[in-house]
Simulated scan of single mutants.
Amino acid sequence: MENLSQEKWVSQIEEDKDAVIIDVRTEDEVAEGIIENAIHIDIHGGQDFIDKLEALDKSKNFYVYCRSGNRSGQACSIMVQLGFVRAYNLEGGILEWEGNLVDLD
């Protein structure tokens, strides 16, 4: 797990053909907008959260964010425990995000 500044997080994603973006916020938070191409997996989902993580391809590179960077840091730690090799936390989360947000389809 690695904490990345927004600049580093975005530049890595742009160069990473195996990038998967995960939003671990709640449904209500996601309703306010989500980073484009992100997968929503609520960290408060308990076993459902674990099951959805386990269904992902662990060989990919995962870029995780939440509201402030705290829950996504926790999610990255959980992912490492589950055997994910590359999990990157967005420092400052969506509160410090300067890019665009889209509606979740």
Score class of each variant (00 low, 15 high):
Met1Trp: 08
Met1Tyr: 11
Glu2Tyr: 08
Glu2Pro: 04
Glu2Asn: 10
Asn3Tyr: 10
Asn3Arg: 12
Ser5Pro: 08
Gln6Ser: 04
Gln6Arg: 10
Gln6Gly: 03
Glu7Gln: 15
Glu7Ala: 14
Lys8Gly: 06
Lys8Leu: 13
Lys8His: 09
Trp9His: 04
Val10Arg: 01
Ser11Tyr: 00
Ser11Pro: 09
Gln12Asp: 14
Ile13Gly: 01
Glu14Ala: 13
Glu14Ile: 03
Glu15Lys: 13
Glu15Trp: 04
Asp16Leu: 03
Asp16His: 01
Asp18Glu: 15
Asp18Gly: 11
Ile21Gln: 01
Ile21Arg: 06
Asp23Leu: 09
Asp23Glu: 06
Val24Phe: 10
Val24Trp: 07
Arg25Ser: 07
Arg25Lys: 06
Thr26Ile: 04
Thr26Phe: 08
Glu27His: 13
Asp28Val: 09
Val30Glu: 05
Ala31Thr: 13
Glu32Met: 12
Glu32Asn: 12
Glu32Phe: 08
Glu32Leu: 14
Gly33Asn: 08
Gly33Glu: 03
Ile34Arg: 11
Ile34Gly: 01
Ile35Lys: 00
Ile35Tyr: 00
Glu36Leu: 12
Asn37Val: 08
Asn37Phe: 06
Ala38Ile: 00
Ala38Thr: 00
Ile39Cys: 05
Ile39Pro: 02
His40Trp: 10
Ile41Arg: 00
Asp42Gly: 08
Ile43Val: 14
Gly45Ser: 13
Gly45Trp: 09
Gly45Lys: 12
Gly46Leu: 12
Asp48Tyr: 14
Asp48Gly: 14
Phe49Asn: 00
Ile50Ala: 02
Ile50Pro: 00
Lys52Cys: 03
Leu53Ser: 03
Glu54Phe: 07
Glu54His: 07
Leu56Tyr: 13
Leu56Asp: 04
Leu56Gly: 05
Lys58Ala: 13
Ser59Met: 09
Phe62Pro: 08
Tyr63Val: 01
Tyr63Ala: 01
Tyr65Asn: 06
Tyr65Pro: 04
Tyr65Met: 10
Cys66Lys: 06
Arg67Ile: 03
Arg67Lys: 15
Arg67Trp: 12
Ser68Asp: 02
Gly69Cys: 06
Gly69Ala: 11
Asn70Phe: 04
Arg71Met: 10
Arg71Ile: 10
Ser72Val: 12
Ser72Thr: 07
Ser72Gln: 05
Gln74Leu: 14
Ala75Glu: 11
Ala75Thr: 04
Cys76Val: 13
Cys76Pro: 04
Cys76Ser: 07
Ile78Leu: 11
Val80Ser: 13
Val80Gly: 08
Gln81Tyr: 08
Gln81Asp: 15
Leu82Thr: 05
Phe84Leu: 07
Phe84Cys: 08
Ala87Arg: 05
Ala87Gln: 05
Tyr88Lys: 04
Leu90Met: 03
Leu90Ile: 02
Glu91Ile: 15
Gly92Asn: 03
Gly93Ile: 02
Gly93Asn: 02
Ile94Gln: 09
Ile94Thr: 11
Ile94Cys: 04
Glu96Asp: 14
Glu96Phe: 01
Trp97His: 07
Trp97Val: 05
Glu98Trp: 11
Glu98Leu: 11
Gly99Asp: 06
Gly99Leu: 09
Asn100Ser: 15
Asn100Trp: 05
Leu101Arg: 05
Leu101Asp: 00
Leu101Glu: 01
Asp103Glu: 15
Asp103Asn: 14
Leu104Tyr: 11
Leu104Lys: 14
Leu104Thr: 04
